[in-house]
Design a protein around this nucleic acid. Structure first.
Lengths: 153, 153
DNA sequence: TATTGTTATACTCTATAACTATA
DNA sequence: TATAGTTATAGAGTATAACAATA
């Protein structure tokens, strides 16, 4: 006689959130291999570099609104990037509480090198899918994201 | 005159790996809210509970093969679960290097309570998509996973 | 009083590798 | 020699909150 199962079984390998997490890890490692390899950035540093490369002069506060990073994570990452001379800053004259952050020449150079590599890695990953499939995937993930966020409230 | 951009710009919010990572975090928090809330399990502990609830008597080595956990992560999680009396163990008689792990009655009770809740949370998340869309999503993620793994080698 | 950003602290997680016991 | 599992240790990341400067 078999043990009575009172509920649907949970097979970890078929459990959507688990599978998603494993895939996320693989994707993340692919991208991280680009920015950790030669320039030894942390994930937070890489995100800040990406943001500031695109939009100069942001404050830490603005970066919190554009990324999932919190203010002390940013403060620490900035600290490290400052000592590696990737970032310089000025105080906002109109409101001295704000610091305006910029990439240094060195920071910009690294940014210019990394962006094509990272975009290329993204492209490589996505060659697994046709253009239509990529579009479909984005739609599905958007729906899922909306629901996941809703459920967290 | 505008600054010359020598490459395609990288907009973090539209960068697939970034979006994926944000979504993963939201999904993971949804599931974690179930197993951390009442029983205060860590993610590793939860995964081990899920595995052992399904298959009794596994060794730590076997668990490494069924999850993304490594042996010392398992060793530590087991340690904590042992002191919370969720797990008991016996030595394999044929090869004394192997430990066979089992849920205690208490561990099983928690397992029986958590599985329906966790599956329900998964279901809630997936209501964002139709059955067809869920199937499609799984196919697309599988393809992506294959590619991501391949690129890591 | 409220906000920006820094710092302190304690905690969790991770990675590497040395260690034991068994084979 | 090789394997299963434990332990030590240092580093990275996280969460909470107190803090200084400015508004």
């Amino acid at each position: 006689m078999q043990k009575t199962v009172k509920h649907k079984p949970l097979i970890l390998n078929k459990f959507f959130p688990y599978r998603f997490s494993i895939l996320q890890q693989a994707i993340s490692e692919n991208i991280a291999s680009v920015y950790t390899g030669e320039f030894d950035l942390s994930r937070h540093e890489w995100r800040i570099l990406a943001i500031l490369g695109e939009q100069s002069g942001l404050s830490a506060k603005q970066i919190t609104l554009l990324t999932s990073l919190e203010k002390m994570q940013i403060s620490r990452a900035i600290n490290s990037m400052r000592s590696n001379e990737l970032i310089k800053e000025t105080v906002n004259i109109k409101d001295k509480r704000f610091t305006q952050l910029y990439l240094t020449d060195k920071g910009q150079k690294i940014y210019q090198i990394l962006v094509p590599r990272v975009l290329n890695k993204e492209k490589e990953l996505l060659t697994a899918l046709s253009k239509d499939e990529q579009k479909k995937l984005n739609q599905l993930l958007d729906k899922l994201h909306q629901k996941a966020t809703l459920l967290l409230e």
